[in-house]
Design a protein around this nucleic acid. Structure first.
Lengths: 146, 146
DNA sequence: GGCATATAGTTAGTTATGCAACTAATTTCA
DNA sequence: TGAAATTAGTTGCATAACTAACTATATGCC
């Protein structure tokens, strides 16, 4: 077995490679074609705020798996686009609570529909058991590394 | 089923989320701790050159699923670090053949060992069938979107 | 109370990505 | 042959990521 040394390294590019890149590009393209100016990273922040509004930046870090500077700048850009507002916490003056504007609330249904549609395209020919396996494997990988 | 609308959107964050981020961070950390200055993106380019040296930039685009500007700049940085050289093709003057230096060849075994080790850590408790399913699903996703 | 420590968030610097527009070289084909 | 279209690569601009260093506020503990 000559190039066995390459096998595991190639698994890295499975988990972090063509498929995830292709899905991200397609979703971004679908947003753009619908006339939506937001990036998928911005969308992922909004997504968590739609589930629960007025989270602190730190809480958004935890939920989106980003570090603090990344969230700072994503919120900067979302604020420029008037999709969120920073509201100082009354009980802890270190904390910004990030709050959705009405404009952001209006994006919810449309963008989630686009994400659903994108994932439906992506998952043609993939059955529920396979999806479940992927989810479980990714959860294990995450747990193994954190 | 109240928030069913969220389900597919969440699949996006499975494919493009915590697990792949965690693996990338861990691999980068392992490179750094070994005293290696390269980024994982640079490594992924070297990886393809170790399999076949002297590829054109366009061919590296195809194999790494990156666009041309990304490869241009990755090669710029790899060239600064004296890990590759651009060699003008003799038969087509538009083409740069990207060629490994001796310094890059010396990185091969060490970095691939680190990648193997990282993936072994990441995949504890995951069996071969599950890995095979993930690979197949990701291949289907890629094919569906391209 | 007051100092040490921890936590929340920001800023600066480097690398990487995507898109659009560009140059240079090659190929097509009328 | 020579103009149009294609291909290879580069550059500019915006966004995003990670690290390290920073400010401000809060908490712990003597």
């Amino acid at each position: 077995m000559p190039n066995n040394q390459f096998r595991r390294g190639e698994l890295y590019s499975v988990i972090n490679g063509m498929a995830s890149t292709a899905v991200a590009r397609r979703l971004q393209k679908n947003f753009r074609q619908a006339g939506l100016e937001i990036t998928i990273e911005q969308w992922s922040v909004l997504y968590h705020l739609w589930k629960e509004d007025c989270l602190s930046q730190q809480e958004l870090c935890n939920r989106t798996f980003r570090d603090k500077p990344s969230i700072t700048r994503l919120i900067d850009n979302l604020e420029k686009q008037k999709l969120v507002k920073r509201i100082a916490s009354k009980t802890d003056r270190r904390i910004n609570l990030v709050s959705l504007t009405d404009a952001a609330k209006e994006l919810q249904d449309q963008t989630i529909a686009l994400a659903n549609q994108t994932m439906n395209e992506a998952l043609i020919g993939v059955n529920k058991e396979e999806i479940e396996t992927v989810k479980q494997v990714f959860q294990k990988v995450y747990d193994n590394l954190t």
